[in-house]
Design a protein around this nucleic acid. Structure first.
Lengths: 253, 253
DNA sequence: CGTAGCTTTGAGTGTTATCAACTCTCGTGG
DNA sequence: CCACGAGAGTTGATAACACTCAAAGCTACG
């Protein structure tokens, strides 16, 4: 992408943007930190790591070294059952934090894989905990982010346990819309970075069901679908479905 | 239950057992704390609260005042969808901590209800965060417990998203067995404190399905069921089913 | 000991999975 | 530039697992 000059052959993994200059500052760990605290945090974030599509950030069983803040791109975390069944436990977008489930046992209990070219900031965990001990704002923010992860998982439990397939998909689309909006992107049009298989593994559905539902949503005027490009056409009704009103059958008045 | 004497009319909610005398110390927040840190923690735990069966500890929307450590009994947390569908997001046993999902927004996102007569310790959250700021061991333990909650939710996601009904039930029974074992109770025989409806709402199944599965497990010699009294008869096979080997159909070799 | 709630069991249905074939897209190399 | 191939996505037919509705049996508590 960039013009290459002789002197620019540098290791991309050593590139480092300061948190204070990062556009995601207000979504990420630094939220609420004062200037000096921020640069203390900055000092321990070792590097920015670039990931190719399909590359893994960590695998099940890897020791916890760091938490990861997403700068760009997107990742999925996946849990596996012996016979090959997979459950995607989360999709992660820029500004979101990854790896907190490893704190409990100091081992990652799932795999994390980039869905597209992505960049993550490496936040060494031991150092983070030490700093959080000294900086009240950081401890607070870390606890809040972990709590948010619990809430997100619980929302997902509701989805998987008690929602129909169409409610799940609507819920998922609205979730992307909401989270992209925080990044300043369009709320109504976006490109999915994951396959139908990944969506199915996230929603607890077969990939064919996801595909069929997207087609049906399109027929009903709820969305436009061109491969992974999505346009939300009837957000009101999608929101209603996502809230659990998907059982009154789409009597599109 | 107790003989009542004139002088014993005391407010049960003011009874307070010190953490250091608590049999659950090694399972709970105090794990790893030194003597002085322990008594600091003790000081902020205001009271022990008694709950009757069906009584709620907090409701969706209530402001976060405290986290709750279970001393005895059991509770469930429930999320609701508009039309009455319920998802039980967790069952909580003695030594376990409740309410961490409220830290994110300072409001409880679900209801917590006692499944039987129970006692909980009230841990005021603001004070806990302050103390964790001063006591590294406490911060560490709090982060670990929150991480464990994330892991537990993720395990549940796998269960709801990718396991069959029988795998889910086996998984649930093994989970109770494991957690009761930590309390020193029998690993093989226990009494469920929740109804079939609650189990169904937890497992993402209809209550009739839970009932039928328990009957079938009994027919197959996996368990003995007398109402809510459960005896695990073939833990090996139950464990195997819980791990996801429930699809090779019980060819009881 | 009666009643209300919980549990079991049965019959029939439906949503979603599975299996299968076909199409589309996109990147690669001839 | 176009042909090719592989992976991704769509669509159809069929089947299974779990749900719903229904009724009877059980338990426990007042």
């Amino acid at each position: 992408m960039q013009k290459k000059q002789a002197a620019t052959v540098i290791n991309i993994s050593s590139i480092k943007a300061a948190c204070k200059d990062c556009s995601l500052r207000e979504l990420c760990l630094p939220l609420g930190l004062s200037e000096p605290d921020l640069s203390a945090l900055d000092k321990l974030i070792k590097r920015r790591r670039a990931l190719k599509k399909g590359e893994t950030l960590y695998r099940h069983g890897d020791p916890l070294r760091a938490l990861y803040a997403i700068r760009s791109g997107s990742l999925k975390t996946t849990g596996l059952i012996e016979d090959g069944r997979a459950q995607v436990t989360g999709f992660y977008l820029p500004g979101e934090l990854l790896g907190m489930d490893a704190i409990n046992t100091d081992q990652h209990p799932c795999n994390a894989e980039a869905l597209e070219i992505s960049e993550v900031c490496d936040i060494p965990y031991a150092a983070l905990e030490d700093l959080a001990q000294k900086v009240p704002g950081l401890q607070h923010q870390l606890l809040r982010i972990m709590s948010r992860e619990i809430v997100r998982d619980e929302d997902m439990l509701m989805m998987l346990g008690r929602m129909t397939a169409e409610e799940r998909l609507a819920s998922c689309l609205m979730s992307f819309s909401r989270r992209l909006a925080r990044l300043g992107d369009s709320v109504v049009e976006f490109k999915l970075s994951m396959s139908r298989q990944d969506l199915g593994d996230y929603l607890g559905l077969a990939l064919e069901t996801v595909s069929r539902l997207l087609s049906r949503f399109q027929d009903e005027g709820l969305v436009s679908v061109h491969g992974r490009q999505i346009v939300l056409r009837n957000i009101t009704r999608l929101r209603s479905m996502a809230a659990g009103n998907g059982r009154e059958h789409s009597a599109q008045a």
